[in-house]
Nucleic acid binder design. Structure first.
Lengths: 261, 261
DNA sequence: ACCTGAACACCGTTCAAGT
DNA sequence: ACCTGAACACCGTTCAAGT
């Protein structure tokens, strides 16, 4: 379990909200959580989350590794603080009065945040993370998008969960296509797959492997005409598709609710 | 990028399908990827994925750490193999002819797999993982559930993606509640939160903090009557809610498609 | 109060050597 | 071909010491 303050709140929560008493006496060479978190984020943006080590962060600030421990209880806490700091939405947001539109806006804001700091997706969002400032902000805005809806609180929270999860998975997909996209499977490789992914064992996938459609980095099949299609580049379409599905489902639920009451 | 064979296929894919030529000459004390992966899974089941170190795996098998590198190119490959081996569905599955039912069954199978090996969720599912045997099986079964549906291939894959992501997030939620569930926020802690989560800054969340509803480990408010409710234990309800939403949305889409054609 | 230096117990991975 | 031993370059974190 994560270490907590005497109030039962996780230390990261207390620090993020500025609840921590920082006595400030004696000389201070100017280190602070803010500076530490900012430095860590810069490293993560540049070289990925795995490049964020206590030593690297300290070095980039011109301090020794151990100096960090005065401001941050450990790496875990640093990651939590980074996770929150990165998930910052714009200060002022004007949501559409139409809930469908508003929900789409909200999803889009989340998406933007995750896109700018892709390492956010790697940081485990534990139970306590909902208490962090920017998570609260995100939840608040999500609820704001749905104010007009005749749904229970639990249902609204359910939607926030499902939608944000969908957005996260789409950003993840987008990124995996982008940076691991050098996967190039040769014709020989596809042949090998054809031998193991047989019609008998995998009746529905096998046909797609035959044509090569199913294999990420394979050359497109020499089909007549429509060969030059981006095979999976359209994450955009998948993103919209899932969101549309959820909103459509919600619409039905609301109609059902209003016709009953 | 992950190391690949000369065919362009990731090594983990080749190994998992048994495409790797294993010459087998000279003495063999009986190590193999199968045994290594099995040992690693056992450790992960018992003590979590973080306990899976090359040294721990080797030790549990009675070999030195370095012996593993003859069978596995590195830890990354070991994790990929574990990820696939853990995502095994039952041999024979009888899907309902009703697609809604079938999709629910499929989701439920996924859920069961992730529940039995919760560390699966921590293993990054890269682009190449769709080529692993059990991923192919899962995709095949998902497509099987939707055979009767008048949807494009891309749409079906979209559904597989969205639904499986929803299932994953629900299992994740379930687990985070279970093992980090010792989070107990004292009344003083809730008070501190009330001071920062103000009505002004967070108009929609603030009321929920006032009552204490929003705070995971807080004591339930002394409301009249319905106080003794499990606050978030019903992941089951959230699970169904999201799935229902998606299926309802899909239903509409199908109606639209069939009325157009 | 704040920062440093040395040390500890780990990681994953390499390389040359044994049988 | 298979496994070992020693070594390397890292991790996060501790503790006692300096100013």
């Amino acid at each position: 379990m994560a270490d907590t303050t005497e109030t039962g709140l996780p230390r990261a929560v207390a620090v993020a909200w500025g609840m921590q008493e920082t006595p400030q006496r004696g000389p201070s060479r100017g280190l602070s959580h803010e500076r530490i978190v900012a430095a860590a984020m810069e490293i993560a943006d540049a070289d990925g989350l795995s490049a964020v080590t206590m030593q690297a962060v300290a070095k980039s600030l011109g301090f020794t590794t151990m100096s960090l421990y005065r401001y941050v209880s450990g790496k875990d806490e640093l990651l939590r603080l980074m996770g929150d700091a990165g998930a910052q939405l714009p200060e002022k947001v004007r949501l559409s009065p139409d809930w469908r539109q508003a929900l789409r806006q909200w999803a889009s804001l989340l998406r933007e945040a995750w896109r700018t700091h892709s390492w956010l997706l790697e940081i485990p969002r534990g139970q306590a993370s909902v208490l962090m400032p920017n998570s609260v902000r995100i939840a608040d805005l999500g609820l704001a998008a749905m104010v007009s809806l005749p749904l229970s609180r639990d249902e609204k929270i359910g939607i926030i969960l499902v939608v944000s999860q969908h957005v996260a998975s789409m950003v993840e997909l987008e990124l995996s296509l982008a940076d691991e996209g050098e996967l190039r499977v040769s014709e020989e490789g596809v042949d090998q797959l054809r031998e193991v992914i047989t019609e008998k064992r995998f009746p529905h996938v096998a046909p797609l492997v035959q044509t090569g459609e199913y294999v990420p980095g394979a050359a497109p099949p020499p089909g007549p005409g429509d060969a030059a299609e981006a095979p999976a580049e359209d994450v955009e379409a998948e993103y919209d598709f899932g969101l549309d599905l959820l909103i459509a489902g919600l619409e039905i639920r609301i109609q059902a609710a209003s016709s009953t009451s």
